[in-house]
Amino acid sequence: MDVSEILAAHVAKQKLITVEKDIPLEIDAGFLTVTDLNPGDAESYDESLEEYLLSTARDGVQALVSSLFALPITSSADGPLARLPSPTTQLPRAKPLPKPKPLTKWEKFAKAKGIQKQRKDKKVWDEEKQEWVDRWGWKGANKREETQWLSEVPANADADYDPAKIARGARKEKMAKNERQHQQNLVRAQAANMNSSTSDRFEHKKGIDRTLATARTSTASMGRFDRTLDGEKRLKGLKRKFSAAEVSATAEKSQNLAILKNLDREPIMKKAKSSKEAGGDVLNIRKAIRSYECEDEKGEKMIFISVVLA
């Protein structure tokens, strides 16, 4: 059997789809681009421009299409899909890279502690209704205590004790707390974000105003006879308040105890500083050790401290 004919036919077929150039074509399949770095042929350019352009373009496109058809192909409803490699040409971006989102306080803590996020299902099984209900929202499971027809009442409850009202209050309180924490997180994120001097100056100015207001109200006359500067605004809503000359013994005792307690306490500024030194803003190690001391005996305490130091 003579194979040479078959081989010749194969070579002839290959010839149609291969492109021979002095400098091989640069193909960037990711951007579907081919670059032909061969110098142009001035003669054929002058002779017939359109034909010359068409022939160079055909050669380039043939090479590009060959490389595209050689890519790994998956089939789809619209036809074969070629999986493109990532582009080799570097083009400038239109917008800067997205900034990472600042972590919330909880996320920071969870990261430090290695707490994994656990996704809760949105629906929970309701035994009574025998169906899946939303965990929260309209007819949510978190409102069960407010809507149930029978609820427990403590023995010493008031006459107007309303369990539904109390459950609702607790739920609303939780929502408010969450919102408050959310706002605090936003403020923290903004503070971390803003390096501009304008906001710092604004904050500084506000702090000065606050100090001034405190200073002015610290005299017995609440600053009424102080010298004022031009353009200084009068503080509004200030009134002297006198405590009653005669108070009950218990009230007096509690007042004095409160003062004594404050005297004993560490100043706020100092406290904040020391807690920062103790190890990051996430975990207060001093506090952790203190709480540990309370719980356990001496021997274990020593072990724990050595762990912390290591």
Partner: peptide, 17 residues
């Protein structure tokens, strides 16, 4: 290139060339 084909694609339909 940015004007005509600046988009990064992961795959392309060969029939659509």
């Amino acid at each position: 290139m940015d004007f005509f084909s600046g988009e990064v694609l992961d795959s392309i339909c060969l029939a659509g060339l």
